[in-house]
Design a protein around this nucleic acid. Structure first.
Lengths: 358, 358
DNA sequence: CTGAAAGCGCTTACAG
DNA sequence: CTGAAAGCGCTTACAG
């Protein structure tokens, strides 16, 4: 009897050796067709059969090969997320929210952090995996990003850019940075400040350009000359540590005569660095000078006084970006290269106060 | 002539309609075999042919369908990274480094942030994509993680856990938290501190258990009784905002008589919150009390005094985890369920000083 | 329900 | 170099 058993063809495989629906079908004693119909929830099977297969799936942990399924034509449900300059609190919050929102829409976000300049390679990888859309998030070189957007447009792959990088050929969702500067200037101007120092708002980034444009407009609106009322001491555009950079600039600003009475920082880390350095130089905040941060991160509450800062409205940004992409997916046509602006909010705390008398 | 052209079968397709090597081969005027050989760098083709194909790849942006390639048998080169409790500065640093190191080894890290309890679903997704290994990073429920590890062991999929979560069936790389507590106690004890307050070191987490064990051992070594020398006021184990939680606990501790002279915090955010709250209650640091943080993040330098903190040695942790996984991949056998400990480092700054005289 | 067949896009070994 | 064939793991439509 034993030898008869051993020559039976196609024996029931061990649960851990199940590699395909064929193996699995043999394991449960059904045909591949029957198994496939359970997997894909097709009608016309007895409930008992469905139950049998379901239980065997549990037992064996068998998962149908996604590559075969997708090759057959099923959409991958994957959305590539292409990230640069990732390791910032706001960046992380955006990514986390993005993945959550996409999951709610039934998509799997495949996050890939790329090193600068490697976007072509990464997009090719995503395309070879036949992702259904690609989302760019972070700060990219604008011509490089434009090239990638052209690639995707050519292949009819939906895409959206979160955070404006100066690439105007892509559907984009970004904070309205000029509006942010208008909010900041409105607040500081109302407090009597007329001389503004910029802390770290420099460099070849679209976000910087947008802010400077906004600042210029906000000052013009109040009949202030940009050159006469704004001072920026930036020497280095690339900084390893925003916090230390803020301290360095504050040290320099502290020596200037006349010194600006209000400082506008590129982000909260830089603002906190500057604030602490000013304080250790015996300058009082906000009595001697005011400081405004950017991003409204947790650290705004960690200083004394707490930091006034601009909130990016990340939730709304991410929600809109997902809406733009899912719209393209539904309509199966690319979105126009439109920039959708998110209105910022100024969160006023204690680091800003009335300008000191001379 | 025109009508003759139009009835020619298999015309050269438009560049943007190339979906397969068949389309692409027609586009370049070669056979699928020839194209495939260029794609896979097989010998036996004229340099001119290779060049022709390469250029056409550039022109058209054609990417071979990864699903077909993998179905055929090519390893996916993908490593699934399963993340929980993602949005912390150290978590992000680890992820970023991890992706970088894996890329250097020729692997693509697919990061997926999961909501608690959803690991089964996520691991199934990774398995269906036939990832070559799975890395768990963050704080997981230990029985849930043990279930996942069992799944992977059954399927012979290499895996490693970064950060000990109390699952002792997996190869694990984790900070030596007891050693961290020994460092902290050694430092504080040498400064004369004998009464210790715990700030946020509580809750059903393995990391907490490890630290309390280490604390107990470090005190015993110095003939101090845990119950008599340690005070912990934690009411809430789940906190939305570590910073605010630190402030709350500091407010309570400030009222205690006798009050501990040294405080050990669960992380830097909590420590900074406590430090600022103590200061706003007119307690001097380190003259009246000392505080030690955990993680050695940037914010340790943002307070005055700067915060003494334990450094996790993230680079070494990640490098070792990658080494463990790539070893399994090379040897094609699972690693033993061994816990590899990374030695922490105490970074002494100004928030710790001699214990006050009574 | 089963079983045989076709086909998704690729690679490879083989004959020419 | 080409061309035909086989096969990876799946789904689906079809005949029984």
């Amino acid at each position: 009897l034993e030898s008869v058993e051993s020559i039976v063809s196609d024996p029931k495989p061990a649960p851990n050796l199940i590699r395909s629906t064929a193996d699995f079908a043999r394991y449960v004693g059904l045909s591949r067709s029957a198994v496939s119909r359970v997997l894909n929830e097709r009608p016309g099977l007895r409930p008992a059969t469905v139950e049998l297969v379901r239980r065997a799936m549990q037992e064996t942990g068998f998962t149908p090969n996604a590559h075969a399924v997708h090759l057959r034509g099923k959409p991958t449900g994957m959305i590539g997320v292409c990230v640069e300059n990732f390791v910032t609190p706001t960046g992380v919050t955006k990514l986390s929210l993005l993945q959550q929102r996409l999951r709610e829409c039934g998509y799997v976000a495949m996050i890939q952090v790329q090193r600068p300049g490697a976007s072509a390679e990464l997009v090719r990888h995503f395309l070879s995996l036949r992702v259904e859309a690609i989302i760019f998030i972070g700060h990219f070189n604008s011509t490089e990003l434009a090239d990638r957007v052209a690639d995707l447009r050519r292949h009819h792959v939906p895409h959206v850019v979160i955070d404006h990088s100066g690439c105007d050929t892509a559907p984009t969702v970004t904070l309205d940075r000029p509006a942010a500067m208008e909010l900041v200037v409105a607040h500081l101007h109302a407090l009597g400040h007329r001389r503004y120092g910029l802390i770290g708002i420099s460099g070849p980034y679209q976000t910087v350009t947008d802010r400077l444009d906004g600042l210029r407009a906000a000052l013009a609106k109040r009949r202030l000359d940009f050159g006469a009322s704004v001072e920026s001491l930036d020497a280095l555009h690339i900084r390893r540590d925003h916090f230390e950079y803020g301290r360095t600039l504050a040290r320099e600003f502290a020596r200037r005569r006349p010194r600006p009475t209000a400082f506008i920082a590129v982000n909260d880390e830089t603002a906190v660095g500057a604030l602490l350095e000013f304080q250790s130089l015996r300058l009082r905040i906000p009595a001697d000078l005011s400081i405004v941060g950017f991003n409204n991160q947790n650290i705004c509450q960690m200083t004394r006084p707490q930091l006034t800062s601009v909130d990016q409205q990340i939730e709304r940004t991410v929600a809109l970006a997902v809406q733009v992409v899912s719209g393209q997916l539904r309509r199966a046509k690319p979105a126009p290269a439109r920039v959708r602006l998110i209105a910022p909010e100024l969160v006023v705390r204690d680091s800003t106060g009335p300008a000191p008398r001379h």
